[in-house]
Each structure stands twice: as C-alpha cells, then as structure tokens.
C-alpha cells in the first residue's frame, strides 16, 4: 500500500466522520433552534413560514420580546418556575440521599434477605404509573397531604432506577477499598459517606440529571394532586395554554424555551464530572 492510498483512506475516513458529526449536530439541534426562533416571533408569524422550510422558519422577520413579557406578567410564569425548581431541588436532594443509602446497603453489606430487598425494589418498576394514579392519590389523601407541595415529590424520592444505578456502580468498586476503610476504624456509614460516594460521582451526576429532568417534565401527577390554582408547575402552566377554542402558540414557545434553561444550566454545571480519568485511578501494583 503506497502513501497515496493511505492518505486517501484517512481523508475519506475524516470526511465520513465530519459528515456524521454534522448530521448529528443538525439532527439534534434543529428542533431546539426552531423553538428558540419561534419564541421571538409574533403569533401571526410562527406558522407562516413553516412550509416550505427556509431561513425564515428559524429567524424571526420581526423579532419581539412581547411573548416573554406576556409570559411573566399575564401568565405569572415566574411563580411556576420557582415552584418547579423548588420541587426539583427537593426531589434531587432527598432522592440522592435516600437512594444512595439503600443502594449502599444492597451493594456492600452482606446480610440475610439482601436479595429479597433487591427484588422488593426492582418489582416496583414493573407496574406502569398510569395504573397507580388513582390508588396513589387515595394514599396521599389519607395521609392528609393532598393539595400540598409535599404530595408531589414524596412519591418520587425512592426511585428504583436510581437505586439500581447506584448499586450497579457501587458493586464495581473492588472490595479492597471498602475493607481498607473499615480497617482504619470507620463505621460503615462513614465509609459510605466519605469513600464510596465520591467514587461513584458520575453515577450521582447522572442521577441528579435524571431526577431533575423527571421532576421538571412531570405532568400528570402534579396535575392530579394539586387543586390550588396558584400552585401550578410549569408543565401544567404550559398545558393551560391549550384550550378547546384556541392555542396560544406564541406563549407556548416562549414558555417552552424558558423551561429548558434551568435544565441546561444544571447540565453545564455537572459537565466536568464526566471527564474520563477523574475516578479511574485503579489499584496500583
């Protein structure tokens, strides 16, 4: 094989890689860009330039901030955002703490009935949520917490996925680490807190993102459980814009755009934990 063929092959490979990347970037970002563009368009313009696709589909011909002003004044969206943020924060904090503790128990502590506990948790994933709405609501009512914020996030704290995820990562930490911690005279809890948790940082970060997005995007449950018209989470607030007689598209898009911002912020803050090599330090020698 001469140099020319090698260079050609490498050139071809680079072109293919570049094209695939371009395709990926476009495929993933186009809908989002369209949403942003539409949120700055007046109502009459949003669907004017959809068919056919041109640059005008994405860039407003007469851009306006009116939609956002309306969103925060007439529709009081700011309070919805605060409410959703508050709920998401509580969900994430409680969930990470509670789930990591029980995952630790499942992964590291040996005791009779451990497998039973594991399946006890796993089985909860199997019943679709929609089937549980009515009885769960009844439980919430009998606890006396219906129509409160707690009713929204309490059922989300113990999440079998997250428990499973943590357990998965904890299992992969070699036993030597764990025993080392114990020998130095720490209790299991201390080992859990200071040694194991930092080691599964990427899993915790994933869990934060999952629970945050899950809580942020949830619709049916907050809808069912809250009667107070002043406590509307963002998804319910957006859904209010779809009525039998009209759909306030300009507000829908500006609201949708605004709701993606906190999630992106959370993600950017957690970015650095995904850099390879942060936790890979293995056992030397």
């Amino acid at each position: 094989m001469n140099t020319f063929t090698i260079l050609l092959k490498r050139g071809m490979r680079n072109i293919i890689i570049a094209l695939s990347l371009l395709f990926v970037v476009l495929a993933f970002s186009i809908p989002y860009l369209w949403m942003i563009g539409s949120s700055f368009k007046p109502r009459a313009e949003i669907f004017q330039y959809i068919f056919p696709f041109t640059w005008r589909t994405f860039v407003p011909v007469s851009p306006t901030f009116h939609n956002f002003v309306e969103l925060f004044t007439t529709f009081k969206f700011g309070s919805s955002i605060f409410l959703s943020l508050y709920i998401a924060f509580l969900t994430v904090v409680f969930s990470i703490v509670v789930c990591s503790m029980i995952a630790f128990v499942l992964a590291k502590l040996q005791f009779k009935g451990r497998t039973l506990l594991f399946f006890y948790i796993l089985a909860t994933l199997m019943v679709p949520f929609e089937a549980r709405i009515v009885p769960l609501y009844l439980v919430i009512r009998s606890l006396g917490v219906d129509n409160t914020i707690a009713a929204i996030y309490l059922p989300w704290i113990a999440d079998a996925f997250v428990i499973f995820l943590f357990r998965q990562h904890l299992c992969e930490i070699p036993k030597d680490f764990y025993d080392a911690g114990l020998i130095e005279g720490c209790t299991h809890f201390r080992v859990y807190r200071s040694l194991m948790l930092p080691m599964i940082t990427p899993a915790i970060v994933s869990a934060i993102l999952i629970k945050f997005i899950w809580s942020w995007d949830s619709f049916i449950w907050p809808l069912v459980v809250i009667r107070n018209p002043r406590l509307q989470v963002i998804t319910v607030a957006i859904s209010n814009l779809f009525s039998d007689q009209d759909i306030l598209w300009n507000i829908v898009f500006s609201a949708a755009f605004v709701t993606t911002i906190p999630v992106l912020v959370v993600f950017f803050m957690l970015q650095k934990y995904y850099i390879a090599g942060v936790t890979s330090s293995g056992i030397k020698g």
Partner: peptide, 29 residues
C-alpha cells in the same frame, strides 16, 4: 451487629417510601 443496624437504618427511608407510595397503590390496583 453493626452491619445489621446499618442495613436497617440506611435502608429505612427508602423502604418505607416504597411501601407507602408503591406497594400500597399496587395492592389497591
């Protein structure tokens, strides 16, 4: 004993939450 104590206390919150918010509704269903 330490293992059992830790196992119980550390899994208690999740266990109770799952019982109340998952199993009771499932049994009702």
């Amino acid at each position: 004993r330490s293992v059992y104590l830790h196992a119980i206390f550390m899994s208690l919150p999740a266990f109770i939450a799952i019982l109340i918010f998952n199993y009771i509704p499932i049994l009702q269903a």
